[in-house]
């Protein structure tokens, strides 16, 4: 292939030259397949992320006071139920944990086959995944939700002295 450069050399041969290994002369070999593979993985990962989010959203995220009131928060379907663990309600026997959760004055008992992880304890907001059967939530997953408040342990002792107790008004959950 012939061409001309900026200096006006009309007969300059512009045919690409290659090394023995097939790479262009004077040019660092570039692996263009790698970014294409990465881009394909990015598209797949994006699809998986969105799909998982949508599948997770199939289970309605309800507060205790919305059971039987809000659409989707019905007793006969799988839901995610949010409430605060009631003080003195935790009972762990034979690998089963029973407790009750409250939100805006409404309470529901929870039976969970296992020991909840994280910082599970009384007076802490939780999200329980499960189905309501015979007035109790049969949970198969308990997630502890901590509030956006950060209080030093020393301050807690002051709060204990004032006997503030549980707050299940819904503000912390």
């Amino acid at each position: 292939m012939a061409g001309h450069d900026t200096a006006g050399n009309d007969d300059l041969d512009l045919t690409p030259r290659t090394n023995v290994d097939g790479t262009a002369v004077g040019r660092t070999p570039q692996r263009h397949w790698l970014p294409i593979v990465v881009l394909a993985l990015v598209v797949v990962a994006g699809g998986v992320i969105v799909t998982q989010f949508l599948r997770s959203a199939v289970d309605y995220y309800c507060n205790v006071d919305e059971v039987g009131v809000r659409d989707g928060c019905d007793a006969d379907r799988r839901i995610r139920l949010q409430g605060t663990v009631d003080e003195g309600s935790i009972d762990q026997r034979n690998g089963v944990t029973s407790f009750s959760i409250s939100f805006n004055g409404e309470t529901i008992p929870v039976v969970y086959d296992g020991e909840p992880g994280g910082i599970f304890k009384e007076c802490i907001p939780v999200v329980v995944h499960g189905v309501i059967e015979q007035g109790a939530l049969r949970g198969d997953r308990v997630e502890v939700k901590h509030s956006d408040e950060y209080v030093a342990v020393n301050d807690e002792r002051v709060a204990d002295a004032k006997d503030l107790g549980c707050d299940a008004s819904g503000s912390g959950a």
Binding site: Q52, F53, V144
Partner: peptide, 18 residues
């Protein structure tokens, strides 16, 4: 350590992963 699970397909985690 806090929630009891490494991951949850929750809105904040999902959008951050995206």
């Amino acid at each position: 350590l806090t929630w009891g699970v490494f991951w949850q397909w929750d809105a904040r985690l999902t959008t951050t992963a995206l």
